[in-house]
Amino acid sequence: MTRNTATLIGFSAVALWSLLALFTVASAPVPPLLLNALCFGIGGGVGLVWLLCTGGLGQLRGVPLSVYAFGAAGLFGYHFLYFSALRLAPPAEAGLIAYLWPLLIVVFSGLLPGERLRAGHLAGAVLAFAGAALIVAGGIGALEGAGAGYTLAFLAALTWAGYSLVSRRLGHVPTGAVAVFCLASSVLAAIAHLALENPQWPQGITGWGAILALGLGPVGLAFFTWDIGVKRGDIQLLGTASYAAPLLSTLVLVIAGVARATPVLAVSAALIAGGAVLAARAGRDRVRRSKDG
């Protein structure tokens, strides 16, 4: 597989994640833990069938248990926070805050050994967080529980940023391990659901269709294609493409009639995406100067 092919495969994950909020809203009133269990069960099951068909099960024996624990905790933790946020706050606004993770990846990566946090990173962080603050300020008092939803959305962004940064150091782990991550996440979510939630199942064809779509796409195939992209493709180009996710997700919600195209929403989306792009440019400038030097 060429570098360009792997990068294109990674792009598909960004496109699939733009549908995450819409399908999550359509899956209501399924509670977050049960939603995790169902979606990851579908995604992990499809991944397991793929491994059986391609003879890839053997490569999973050499993966340390600590890696499986890390992957399951990252996937389970992020989606539990994300699904909960979209149940408690307006989906477009909560989704935008959750999609601060590309920016957080850029900013936190600048603190890693061998990296440098530049002025562009900080300026981008300020700009994007201004967009998030605009969302929160506009939602105060507008919906009971929205503040808790916004907080969970931000914690989701932190969780996925941390998961992605640590995953950069696990390039030797086969992509097939993602199937185990998903299945383990499904089991964890099912146990937690039985202990903490009252079961509420999807309603009608729309609800079950949303569950199936989530498990096959944003909470299934996307993890496999993203893993291939970040390990074998152009990670900087993929990171930049991720900044389109919040705009695409919001646009999908507006087109579907789930969210209104308000001026505040448009400005917030522009600030968040603009701040992320500014931070990405700072990173590319650093790489360019190091090559020239």
Rank of each mutant, 00 (worst) to 15 (best):
I97M: 09
A73D: 02
A72G: 15
P91T: 01
L122S: 05
A13T: 07
E93C: 00
L134E: 12
E93D: 13
L103G: 05
L57R: 04
L81N: 07
R3V: 09
P64V: 09
F40C: 09
F70G: 03
P113G: 09
A98H: 05
G44A: 08
L104A: 10
A28S: 14
F76R: 02
G71R: 05
G124Y: 07
A133G: 14
L122I: 15
L52P: 02
G114Y: 04
V25H: 00
L88M: 14
L117M: 14
L34Q: 11
S84P: 05
L19S: 13
S18W: 04
A89I: 03
V63W: 03
A119Q: 09
V30M: 04
G58Y: 00
F83N: 10
A94D: 02
L20W: 01
G114N: 12
G114K: 07
L19M: 14
A21G: 04
V67L: 03
A98T: 09
L117P: 03
Y99G: 01
R61I: 01
V25Y: 01
A119I: 15
P102D: 02
A72S: 15
L96S: 00
V67E: 01
L34E: 06
A37W: 08
T24L: 08
L81H: 08
G43V: 03
S27F: 10
N4M: 11
Y82P: 05
W50A: 15
T24P: 10
R87Y: 03
P102M: 09
G44C: 10
L16D: 02
A128M: 10
F83E: 03
L65H: 05
A94H: 04
L57C: 08
L100T: 09
L65S: 10
W17F: 12
A94E: 01
L65E: 02
L19H: 02
L52C: 14
S12K: 04
L96D: 00
A13K: 04
G71A: 11
L35Y: 09
S27N: 09
A28K: 14
L35Q: 13
L8T: 11
W50N: 11
S84M: 05
G71Y: 04
V106Q: 06
N4K: 12
L88G: 01
T54Q: 05
L65M: 13
A15D: 02
G43L: 08
S66V: 13
V126N: 07
G131V: 07
T7H: 06
P64L: 08
S66T: 15
F129R: 11
P113R: 08
A125Y: 08
F11Q: 12
Y82T: 06
P64N: 09
H121I: 06
F40I: 08
P102A: 08
A28Y: 09
A37G: 13
L33C: 12
A92K: 06
F80M: 13
A28W: 03
F108V: 13
P90A: 00
G110A: 07
A26V: 04
I105C: 10
G120A: 11
W101F: 15
S12W: 02
T5L: 15
A119K: 12
G45M: 12
L57M: 15
